[in-house]
Simulated scan of single mutants.
Amino acid sequence: MTDDDGDEFVDTLLEWYTDNGRHDLPWRDPNATPFEILIAEYMLQQTSVEQVLGVYEEFVGKYPTPASIVDAESDEFGEDLEPLGLHKRTAYVERASEQIIGQYDGEVPNRLDELLDLHGVGEYTAASVLAHAYDGDVAAVDTNVARILARVFGLETEDEPDARENWELAERLAPSDRCGDFVHALIDFGASVCTASNPNCEGCPASGLCEYTDTEHD
C-alpha cells in the first residue's frame, strides 16, 4: 500500500460517512459526556446497536455519572442492563465507576493507559473512548474494522481484530484531525456496505481501491 492509496481510501471513506453515517446515534451527540460514551462502549460490547438503542438513553438519564452508579444498588442498574445480556457488564460498570471516583476524581481518564486500567476496558474500548470523548489521535480496531482493512489492503488478518498488523495499519491511516470520524466511519461502513457476508461490492465507493474486490469478484 502506498501513502497515496491510504489517503485516497480515507478520503473516500470520510466522504461516504458524511453522507451515510449514523450521525443520530445518541452517544455520538457532541454533547455526550465522556462517562456517557464509556457507558455506550460497555453496552456495545458483543451487543448490536439496535439492542443498545433500546436502553441507552433511559440508562444514562437515570445514571449520568459514576457517583450515580455507586450510589445505586447493583441489582437496580443490573436490571436496567439486563435486556442487553452479558451479565458481567454490570460488574464492569460498577467497578469502573468506583475506580473513576477513587482514582480520577470522578472524571473518566483521558489517557490510554489509564483507560486500560478500568475494569472491563480492553484496547478497543479504551481507544474508542479516547477518540470519541477526547478527540484523541488514536485508531480502534474491532472485528468489523479488521474485516474492512484486510479486504481493502489484502491482509490475511480479517478474522484477527487483535493482530498487530491491523492496529498498525489503522493507526497509519487515521487522520490526526478526524480520528473519531474515522472510527465511526469504519464501524458504519462495516455495518452497511462491507458486511461479513454478502458485502455490497458493486455499490462500494472504495471498490476501485479494494484488493478483495479485485481478487474475489472479477
Rank of each mutant, 00 (worst) to 15 (best):
L14H: 03
E8M: 08
T18R: 15
L14S: 03
P34N: 12
L13M: 08
Q45R: 12
D11A: 15
Q51C: 05
Q46W: 09
F35L: 10
H23Y: 00
D24E: 15
L53Q: 11
I39E: 04
R28V: 00
Y42G: 07
V10E: 02
I39R: 00
I37H: 06
V49A: 07
I37N: 08
L13Q: 00
M43I: 06
V52W: 07
E36N: 09
S48M: 02
R22D: 01
P26A: 14
L38I: 11
V10S: 10
F9Y: 14
Q51R: 15
R28Y: 02
D29V: 09
N20Y: 12
Q46S: 14
E8A: 14
P34I: 04
L25M: 11
P30L: 13
F9V: 15
I39P: 02
I37A: 03
M43H: 09
T47H: 01
S48I: 00
T18N: 06
E8W: 02
D24S: 14
A32M: 09
M43N: 02
F35K: 03
R22C: 03
E36Q: 15
G21H: 07
F9A: 11
E36L: 00
S48D: 08
F9K: 11
N20S: 13
P34H: 05
W27P: 11
M43D: 09
P30E: 07
I37S: 06
T18C: 01
A32F: 02
I39C: 07
T12E: 10
G21D: 11
Q46C: 10
E50V: 14
W27K: 12
N31Y: 08
D29Q: 06
V49C: 01
Y42R: 09
A40G: 00
L38M: 14
E41F: 07
A40E: 01
W16V: 10
I39T: 13
F35I: 06
P30I: 04
L25D: 00
N20M: 07
L13N: 05
Q51W: 05
D11E: 15
T18W: 11
L14I: 04
W27D: 10
R28S: 05
N31E: 15
L44V: 06
L25K: 00
T33R: 13
A32C: 12
E50M: 04
E50R: 10
R22M: 03
Y42L: 11
L53V: 03
L53A: 02
L53K: 07
R28G: 01
A32T: 15
S48N: 10
F35W: 13
D29S: 09
M43T: 00
E50P: 08
L13D: 06
Y42S: 10
Y17P: 05
R28N: 05
V52P: 03
E36R: 13
D29K: 04
E15L: 09
E36F: 04
Y17W: 15
V52Y: 03
W16T: 10
V49E: 05
F35P: 04
T12C: 12
L38Y: 12
T18F: 02
I37G: 04
S48T: 15
